[in-house]
């Protein structure tokens, strides 16, 4: 009996101390190690639109051309036009409202940081994070130049970051589905005689792009 009482007291004390420490946040559990500045520096590669996170260094369009031709052109094309189905990097201006929109750095991307951050973390494809900072600035400068965003003499660095003006900077707006698609919230969706006669207007078999099934099902 006395053991039970002391157990209850212990629980109450524990609850009280937890409550005392948790004015706003729950108690910390003390799991995990402090990340050192050196550890963080090795992984902290993101760059924000305002340039926060951009590393020291600089690179010219001319230097970037050499790197691009050896490291990028095989997939993206010598002029950023794309080889095969790899992403196209240049051209496409004025196509976004057409039936065949071409989304490139010049026609679609709104911010320099998106390009810099992406190349820094993921390119060249299959050899990620292999470029040094100067090479990175240079190859990004060259892709901007391919899109006529900077001239041939441009040198990209933290200092010139703000000078880069992306053509489609104002091409985006936040999700507005809850207002523009309000009609899709419908308390009484139609159940009977909801539409006139139904006709088939398109067939997948006519398009004929479904992969042949090479699995057991084809036997």
């Amino acid at each position: 009996m006395s053991r039970l009482v002391s157990a209850i007291c212990a629980v109450l004390l524990l609850a009280a101390s937890t409550f005392a420490q948790s004015k706003n946040a729950p108690k910390k559990l003390g799991i995990g190690q402090m990340a050192t500045a050196e550890q963080i520096a090795g992984w902290d590669i993101d760059v924000r639109p305002d340039g926060q996170g951009a590393p020291p260094g600089k690179g010219s369009v001319k230097q970037g051309e050499e790197i691009y031709m050896t490291r990028c052109a095989a997939c993206h094309g010598e002029f950023g036009e794309s080889a095969g189905r790899w992403p196209q990097l240049a051209q496409g201006k004025g196509t976004l409202a057409s039936n065949d929109p071409v989304r490139t750095v010049g026609s679609y991307w709104a911010r320099l940081s998106s390009l810099f951050d992406y190349v820094r973390r993921a390119m060249p494809f299959g050899d990620a994070q292999a470029l040094n900072n100067d090479e990175l600035y240079a190859v990004v400068a060259y892709v901007l130049n391919l899109n006529d965003i900077v001239d041939d003499k441009f040198v990209l660095s933290k200092e010139t970051w703000e000078q880069v003006k992306m053509p489609n900077a104002n091409g985006f707006y936040d999700d507005d589905r809850e207002t523009t698609e309000k009609a899709f919230w419908n308390k009484r969706p139609c159940m009977d005689n909801c539409r006139g006669p139904v006709t088939i207007t398109g067939r997948a078999r006519a398009v004929d792009v479904t992969p042949e099934d090479k699995g057991a099902a084809a036997q």
Binding site: L96, R103, G171, D175
Partner: peptide, 15 residues
């Protein structure tokens, strides 16, 4: 931005 944004008919995109 480049991906996972929804290009509308008027050439503007939802993000």
């Amino acid at each position: 931005t480049s991906k996972y944004t929804d290009l509308m008919e008027n050439g503007k995109a939802r993000q």
